[in-house]
């Protein structure tokens, strides 16, 4: 009864894909939602995909109780340093990281549930001037931190019970690393974007910095979201949060750029632009597989198929307030894609795509 169909509002009448509202949850105690994510939670032999919401001072875990009904399982109180973002650990269970700080990330904490003694805990993982952090497969976290003299790029891995194991250091590039992305299909490769608009490649096993490739002046201030290796090329999905609209490039939210790691040359493959006639530009977004979602300055959420370079669905801003967050949920392969769209008042809507 609560589900409603929201057909994509596209001027050319495309209705191939749509977003179906599955359920809605509202954190009544939170007046300012900062981030939203998902986390597998296993207790008493039951494993469920739960929603994690963050406000400035706490992070809450929500489990599904029934159709359109969510119950708050636990809230981690995080003290005086504000939460900046949730850093999910893909494929992990009962574990998630959270980044805290003022303007920049000052510390990363691990939030965990111990099924052995049915208790929720948190522990400090890293402190410093942290510029970027990403959860990797196999319960690992990579982060870059900077002092005046040097940059550290480090990986910490966790056991199933959340204990930190020996870390690994990756060779840092000269420039500050602004974002990381795993390379799909290449377990030992990691890419990053830097403050001077380069893409770098590491070998995760040895820590070697393998290559630095300039993205090109037509794609300013790039942030990497995802990478794929195919046919000897490295395809990197980039967004440009600070880019201005230009006549030559239009107003793209995401771009797929092909790099030849052997020669460091690159070429743009596809640009995923805002729907025609839609004002505003990219604010923030998320990529999973070939799907990208972004919040636009208009308050709308747009979804693109990156293989087609086409906007396939759009959530209008709504009568009250616009959307603030758009994240893809971790899901089983059989359940398809699920979009989490969040509003600043703490309302999170789950859409099946």
């Amino acid at each position: 009864a609560v589900a409603e169909q929201l057909a994509p509002v596209l001027p050319d009448g495309l209705r191939e894909e749509s977003l179906q509202l599955v359920s809605k949850l509202k954190d009544c105690s939170s007046s300012c939602a900062v981030d939203v994510s998902t986390m597998w939670w296993e207790a008493a032999g039951c494993r469920e995909l739960c929603v994690v919401t963050a406000c400035e001072s706490s992070v809450s875990l929500w489990k599904p109780l029934g159709p359109n009904c969510w119950g708050r399982v636990y809230t981690w109180q995080l003290g005086e340093i504000p939460v900046i973002q949730i850093v999910p650990l893909p494929d992990s269970c009962n574990l998630a990281c959270v980044a805290l700080g003022d303007l920049e990330i000052g510390e990363i904490r691990l939030l965990l549930y111990s099924s052995e003694n049915d208790s929720f805990k948190q522990s400090l993982v890293r402190t410093g001037n942290i510029k970027a952090a990403l959860g990797l497969k196999d319960r690992r976290l990579v982060s870059s931190s900077r002092t005046v003299q040097e940059q550290h790029v480090e990986i910490v891995s966790f056991s199933e019970t959340g204990r930190s194991r020996d870390g690994q250091t990756l060779m840092p590039p000269e420039e500050t690393v602004s974002a990381f992305a795993e390379v799909e299909g290449m377990r030992d490769a990691l890419v990053g974007t830097t403050a001077v608009n380069s893409v770098v490649i590491w070998n995760l096993k040895t820590g070697q910095l393998l290559k630095k490739m300039h993205v090109g002046y037509s794609y300013p201030a790039s942030i990497c979201h995802q990478a794929y290796s195919d046919s000897g090329l490295l395809f990197v999905v980039l967004s440009h949060p600070h880019a201005k609209e230009s006549e030559s490039c239009g107003n793209p939210a995401f771009r797929v750029v092909a790099f030849n790691p052997s020669t460091a040359r690159s070429s743009g493959v596809l640009a995923s632009s805002l729907p025609p006639g839609h004002a505003g530009r990219y604010l923030e977004g998320d990529v999973r597989g070939a799907l990208a979602a972004a919040v636009l300055t208009s308050g709308a959420v747009a979804v693109w198929d990156l293989l087609l370079g086409q906007c396939t669905a759009l959530l209008p801003p709504g009568p009250a307030r616009g959307w603030a967050l758009a994240r893809w949920a971790s899901t089983d392969a059989c359940t398809g894609a699920c979009l989490l769209a969040g509003q600043r008042d703490g309302t999170v809507c789950l859409y099946r795509y």
Binding site: Q208, G232, S262, V269
Partner: peptide, 23 residues
């Protein structure tokens, strides 16, 4: 994009870069 834009492509680029890069 064509090979002429990007230069010669190697299917084993990762292994080759690992062999070339400083340890």
């Amino acid at each position: 994009c064509s090979e002429s834009d990007l230069g010669p492509i190697s299917l084993n680029w990762f292994e080759e870069l690992c062999a070339e890069a400083p340890p």
